[in-house]
Design a binder for these strands. Sequence first.
DNA 1: TTGAAAGCGGTACCAG
DNA 2: CTGGTACCGCTTTCAA
Lengths: 331, 331
Amino acid sequence: MRDVAALAGVSVKTVSRVVNEESGVKADVRARVLAAATRLDYRHNLAASNLRRSRARTGVVGVLVQDLGNSFSASLVRALEDAWRDRGLMVLAASLDEAAEREQQIVENLITRRVDGLVIVPASPRHDYLAPEIRAGLPVVFADRLPRGIDTDSVTTDNRRGAFLAINHLVHVGHRRIAVLTDAPSIATAEERISGVQDALAAHGREGTLDLLHTGIRSEADAEAAVRALMAEPSPPTAIFAARNVLAQGSVRALAEMGLRHSVALVGFDDFPLAQLLDPPLTVVRQDVARLARLVGTRLLERLDGDTSAPIHEIIKPTLIARGSGEIPPS
Amino acid sequence: MRDVAALAGVSVKTVSRVVNEESGVKADVRARVLAAATRLDYRHNLAASNLRRSRARTGVVGVLVQDLGNSFSASLVRALEDAWRDRGLMVLAASLDEAAEREQQIVENLITRRVDGLVIVPASPRHDYLAPEIRAGLPVVFADRLPRGIDTDSVTTDNRRGAFLAINHLVHVGHRRIAVLTDAPSIATAEERISGVQDALAAHGREGTLDLLHTGIRSEADAEAAVRALMAEPSPPTAIFAARNVLAQGSVRALAEMGLRHSVALVGFDDFPLAQLLDPPLTVVRQDVARLARLVGTRLLERLDGDTSAPIHEIIKPTLIARGSGEIPPS
DNA sequence: TTGAAAGCGGTACCAG
DNA sequence: CTGGTACCGCTTTCAA
């Protein structure tokens, strides 16, 4: 900047004015400065500029999701990007893969980078570690899963109701032996979904009959193996509820390989782009990711704009989309 | 930092030493500093620290893809993240949606943030604008599409060969009326794929018979509409080559709605997670995204580590995965 | 092992 | 409309 100033024959302050498009610089001076900047390949340094600036903004929001490669995470990030583009906010993204330590570590790293805000699909069971940051005014919005140990904005799905819808649907179709595939119950979302399953069974006078619950199923491969094992048992289930999209995909894979696609009912949680094109089309409990992302994006912007009201917890109602796989009757 | 120093009764320099885990600080002093830092909720400021540091590194790499919501882009970003995690590099991601201006604009913005490097799946036709940055030593790796107007590292797929494989396959199955769906030829990748189609037709003595080429098909919806229109014509094609993954998905959707899934052959370009589970399973030309990402990630790391040799252009060979949809014979 | 002072690239504040 | 000077938060350099 000093070089540019020298070449243009002005002070650094004037260069600063031009670079920041402040008013009050004569056109010819402006032109000279711009010319000098171009000639010297000058590049403004945002970090340095923010250092002295009073209300500094990096224009970066940290977004922590489970797996950027998963359609749920990817859609979320994409929608946030769109929601923030015209505000000039960029997304610094990271996958957590359900690793609690990674979450804390990355958050710490992001704080060090002075991100303007944080969107978190948490992997850790408690989030007390964020308390100082939130107290200091950092906007933090939890997505898809609720914060624990602190109170901050969140946008989540009614997981309990979603699972209820799924099981209720299968029971109505006539199923009695329903296998449930889900993550470890230590993950809040999984726990809520299990509760929903129990609600549905209770509603049909079948409390405590959840003998086919398989927890700790974390990946597509896990689900595939679990379904294979299940179907090989003496009295296999006639229906499966896979409580996360990759688990549904693994289930479809296993059923396809075993030639059971059209004889075992399957309902997934989370819709995904091609669910409708599978054979049979997959019945799912859909949570509206676009809506979720929109709400999250808006909430963060409002906090960024100075809204300091009490934390808001928004809950999205899931809906059941019957497409075929969930309507297969028990054999 | 000054406050921490005061509270701990040491100089700022000593605090700096502790924060950066430099050796040569007595344990008790270290402990005092740490305690003071905790009590004051001190957070190290990476930007400020980099300002004076000699070989400053922000630890951020800008990754520009077409659409983070698309499985190709998402997988690429995810794999890069993994490749860089233990080096402490984070990904600042952005979607371009084939908008050339956005590409330049975002790159400019990222330069301002002093990213350590750039990975670009370009949207713009020429990249001269990057010349000064590359000259200044910024590592830039192009992925999936070649740079034009400048010379810098790239990792791309042999698109021409991929398209050749697809058409060749369909011709061998017996097809003569093959529709080709692709992006505008102004996109280099699309152009190469069209060349590949022509190669294949020529190889079968059918030069110039490319009467069913449909360019400018940009989205899943475009593809769906195009296929609907095609199949409604007096003498519809007996096979379709959809030269990008979303176009294949749109085609499947259209064929499914028209009840033609099992009577019209379809080959896609780019594999995606559920292609195998569609009905019929989708035959595709696969480009190994994981491999692509690995090569891109490695190349960038090497440049970051000071490799200043001439730009390297790696080309990945695509393979045809026959799964069913591409083996449907002409009716 | 520790500290003082200069300086990184830029902006704030106030004077001219 | 333009410039001078202090200073942002931290590291470098060199002296103690």
